[in-house]
Amino acid sequence: MNQQMAKQQTKINELVENIEKVMVGKREAIELTIVALLAQGHVLLEDVPGVGKTMLVRALAKSVDLQFSRIQFTPDLLPSDVTGVSIYNQKEMKFEFQPGPIMGNIVLADEINRTSPKTQSALLESMEEKHITVDGVTMRLNDPFFVLATQNPIEYEGTYPLPEAQLDRFLLKLKMGYPLKQEEITMLDRTSNVHPIDTLTPVMTREELLEKQNEVRDVHVSDSIKKYIVEIVSNTRKNPLIQLGASPRASIALMKAAQAYAYIHGRDYTVPDDVKYMAPHVLSHRLLLTSEAKFEGKTDKQILEDLIKKTMIPIERGS
């Protein structure tokens, strides 16, 4: 099994390095996006415009040779623009379903918080259940199915904050951040002639990805690690700085993320450090802070890091 895991880690490294041909200095964001993909979750990328959010998902789609589709969310976008619509064919004298962009393998939901809550909710069924219902007919989405949504900070004009129910559907919430000066110079060098995204070639097939998603589910999680996960999540419900703590769905999400993180690092078992590392990324967007915490300038990640430090780490290693 160790040799097999080493082989799988090499393949994951190839995927990361391939995406790095396009994304400079964003290895952590790349790895975390792959974690979500392998765990069959979805990612919310929140950051200012122009830092590479869209390019990350395009590079991922090309690297895994999957069908890529993009939904540009705007204030006038309708739910049917996401899921698709039935159109009457006069020649055949019947309605025919015209699929929407949600029917892709990797779906970029660009600037999701610029559209109305009604249209945002059109993603809920597909993200959670992996199917859509149009005119009373339920249709299974493509497998694999991965949504990467981007949003500008909610302080920007013309944006709608995502409701808690929709935020909870995202496995991870990430931020890209501005590149370092030397990284930005490297970006200029790489894009001076042909953009690297145009010459990017696949390093993984759809079948290989599906196989890896199945293997991630088999990564061992010991009872002590499960108890550690539940302890962290339940502590978010007791913290006086947190008005609304993480739900049981968050516990499941944290376990799946820890399994995928262990997998990309060549292990078939999880350790406490997997949980500690993934917890802020999995839990931060699922918490609602009190007005006192916000007044004091506390952030969800700061509170989580302090909470995790105070949670007893299990000694037993899952193996």
Rank of each mutant, 00 (worst) to 15 (best):
E128L: 08
E128F: 07
E128R: 02
E129R: 07
K130P: 01
K130C: 09
H131Y: 14
H131N: 15
H131W: 12
I132R: 06
V134A: 03
V134H: 06
D135A: 13
D135N: 11
D135H: 02
G136K: 10
V137T: 13
T138W: 09
T138R: 14
T138Y: 11
M139Q: 15
M139R: 15
M139E: 10
R140L: 11
L141E: 05
L141T: 08
L141P: 02
L141Q: 09
L141N: 09
L141V: 09
L141S: 08
N142W: 03
D143P: 08
D143E: 15
D143F: 10
D143S: 15
D143K: 15
P144N: 12
P144D: 12
P144A: 12
P144I: 13
F145P: 03
F145W: 14
F145G: 04
F145Y: 15
F145R: 04
F146A: 05
F146Q: 05
F146Y: 13
V147T: 10
V147K: 03
Q151K: 08
Q151F: 08
N152A: 08
N152T: 02
P153L: 12
P153C: 08
I154L: 09
I154G: 02
E155R: 10
E155K: 12
E155F: 07
E157W: 02
T159Q: 09
Y160E: 07
Y160K: 03
P161W: 02
P161N: 05
P161C: 09
L162Q: 00
L162N: 04
P163W: 00
E164T: 01
A165M: 06
Q166R: 01
D168E: 03
D168P: 00
D168F: 00
R169F: 04
R169S: 03
L171C: 04
L172N: 06
L172T: 06
L172W: 08
K173D: 02
L174N: 00
K175Q: 13
K175N: 14
M176P: 01
M176R: 01
G177H: 03
Y178N: 09
Y178K: 11
Y178R: 10
L180Y: 13
K181M: 11
Q182R: 13
Q182K: 14
Q182E: 15
E183H: 05
E183N: 10
E183Y: 01
I185K: 12
T186N: 11
T186L: 11
T186H: 02
M187P: 00
M187A: 12
L188E: 00
L188T: 00
D189T: 09
D189N: 12
R190F: 03
R190Y: 03
R190Q: 13
T191W: 04
T191Y: 00
T191D: 01
S192K: 15
S192I: 05
S192F: 05
N193S: 14
N193G: 11
V194C: 06
V194M: 13
V194K: 15
P196S: 08
P196H: 03
I197T: 05
I197V: 13
I197Y: 01
I197F: 08
D198E: 14
D198M: 13
D198S: 13
T199W: 01
T201A: 13
T201V: 14
P202I: 02
V203D: 04
V203N: 07
V203K: 06
M204C: 05
T205F: 07
T205G: 11
T205R: 07
